[in-house]
């Protein structure tokens, strides 16, 4: 793995990784991938599809409100936001056009 590969991974993962850290990660990943490569020794193959014993999906019916949330969840969420307006959360403008 090269430093440019680390930068590419960072771009895919939406993280800025400073240059000096890219070099450190490059060395770490070489060691980790070498360790992981021992899995190529295994040639036996088995079925890895999950075994379902029963239907795991609920019937499609309307549920009551989530019982984990207390009745004042609306107020709590508003209180936790830095800015609110008319019972709505105010967020930063991220698109200008």
């Amino acid at each position: 793995m090269k430093s440019s590969d680390v930068k590419h991974l960072a771009d895919l993962a939406y993280i800025t990784v400073p240059d000096e850290q890219q070099t450190a990660f490059e060395q770490d990943f070489e060691g980790i991938l070498e360790h992981i490569a021992t899995l190529t020794e295994v040639s036996e193959e088995v079925d890895t599809l999950p075994q379902y014993y029963h239907q795991t999906l609920r019937e499609d019916i309307q549920q009551p409100r989530n019982p984990a949330f207390s009745s004042d969840i609306h107020d709590k969420l508003l209180k936790g936001m830095p800015e609110t307006e008319n019972d709505y959360l105010v967020v930063k403008t991220i698109l200008t056009k």
Binding site: L9, A10, A13, Y14, I15, Q21, F25, D28
Partner: peptide, 21 residues
Amino acid sequence: KKSRMEGFGDESTRRILLGTY
């Protein structure tokens, strides 16, 4: 990118990148 760089420590970043790989 900036939020994730500032928010995550080295080990979290290392594992996120490894997982992405």
